[in-house]
């Protein structure tokens, strides 16, 4: 992951890149159905998370894993659809976010693991 981030820096660097292919200005004369879809998707993912938590009857580990997966999916959707993460210096921005989440996982999982001494009953 780390290598990918830095490699991506090397692949596209320095030059001003705006996503000309996306023809951004043109789309803004019509109603933004993409955003509505995104909104509906967020609601669906949230409701799904609620179902997994309260109604699914899965085991604890499975519930946690599924909920986290759904959260990451929704976060990814927001980043791409709402926050336009791929525009402008898209490669750098995406790599930056990937790296940030990667670091976040290290900090959370690492801390929980390091601090779990003596707590072997769960």
């Amino acid at each position: 992951m780390v290598v990918y981030f830095y490699a991506s820096l090397l692949i596209r660097d320095g030059v001003v890149t705006v996503n000309e292919k996306e023809n951004i200005q043109e789309n803004h004369d019509r109603f933004p159905w993409k955003l509505v879809i995104g909104f509906v998707l967020s609601i669906v993912l949230t409701l799904l998370t609620l179902w997994v938590a309260f109604r699914s009857g899965f085991q604890d580990k499975m519930v946690l894993s599924l909920m986290l997966l759904l959260a990451f999916l929704q976060a990814g959707m927001q980043l791409v659809l709402f926050m336009h993460v791929r525009e402008g210096e898209g490669t750098v921005q995406v790599s930056n976010m990937v790296h940030a989440f990667f670091t976040a996982i290290i900090i959370v999982a690492g801390s929980v693991w390091v601090m779990s001494f003596g707590m072997h009953n769960h």
């Binding site: 780390v2 290598v3 830095y6 290290i106 390091v114 001494f117």
Partner: peptide
């Protein structure tokens, strides 16, 4: 780059003796 990446996964060596196991 490698040093920077690895630097985020070595921290417990500052407290090996604190009982993490």
């Amino acid at each position: 780059i490698a040093i920077a990446g690895l630097s985020f996964i070595v921290w417990v060596h500052h407290f090996f003796t604190m009982g993490a196991g």
